[in-house]
Amino acid sequence: MAKIGMFFGTTSGSTRKVAKMIKKRFDDELMAAPLNINRTSVEDFSSYSLLILGTSTVGTGQLPGVSADSEPSWEEGLQKLADVDLTGKTVAIFGLGDQSRYPEQFVSGMRGLYDFVVAKGANVVGGWPTEGYEFIASKSVVDGQFVGLALDLSNQSGLTDSRLDAWLKQIAPVFGLPV
C-alpha cells in the first residue's frame, strides 16, 4: 500500500486537476491515486499516516458541499469522518481560490480542513507564505502564513507548477518524498 493518501473535494474539477498534477510527480508505492472525498470510506481515509488534502473555496469561504446544486464534498465528508482519530498522523493541505473575484475570502476553505484535522490530533505541515498574492482577507492565514499551499488557477496559473514543486520540496523531509 502507498504510504501517502491524497483526498480532495471540488466543485468545478480544478482541485482534482491539481491533485492529479501532484500525483504525476510520484509513483504508486509512495502515493496513492487521489480520491474524491465523496467517493471514499472512513477506512480508506484512516489507513494513511500521511495525508495530503485539497479543497476549493465556495461562498463566503466555506468548504465545498452541502448544496442542492452541488455534489457531496468536504462538508459531508467531514461529517462522515467525525469519529476519526488523527493523532500521530501528518497532514499537508492545498487550497484553490480566486484572489481577484473573491479577495475577501481567498482560499478560506483550507481553514475548515485545517481546524478539523488539528482538532482530531493531526500535525499539519506545509504552511505557505502570503507574499506574491493580492487579496484582502483569508480565514486560512494563521500566524502570518497560509495553513497550506494557496493556488489561484484563474489569475496565476503560470505559477502553479513552481509553487507545487516548492511546496512539495518543503514537505519532502516529513513525507519521505524524493527532493
Rank of each mutant, 00 (worst) to 15 (best):
T160G: 02
S73F: 01
S56R: 06
I136A: 11
D85K: 15
E75F: 12
E104Y: 08
D161G: 10
W74C: 00
W167A: 06
L159W: 06
S140F: 00
K120M: 09
G59A: 04
P173F: 10
L177R: 15
G176I: 15
D115H: 15
S138Q: 07
L177F: 12
Q105V: 12
S73I: 02
E76R: 09
T90C: 08
A122G: 05
F175Q: 05
L149F: 10
G77M: 12
P129T: 06
V66P: 00
V107T: 10
F94Y: 14
T90F: 04
V118S: 09
A68K: 11
Q62L: 03
A166H: 14
N155E: 02
I136T: 11
E75C: 04
G112I: 00
V124W: 10
F175K: 12
L113W: 10
Y133H: 11
F106S: 10
P64V: 00
F106W: 03
W74D: 00
E131N: 15
A119M: 14
I93P: 03
V66D: 08
K89Q: 10
I136M: 15
S162A: 15
E134H: 11
S67G: 11
F135T: 04
I171L: 09
N123D: 13
D115P: 11
M110C: 01
T57R: 02
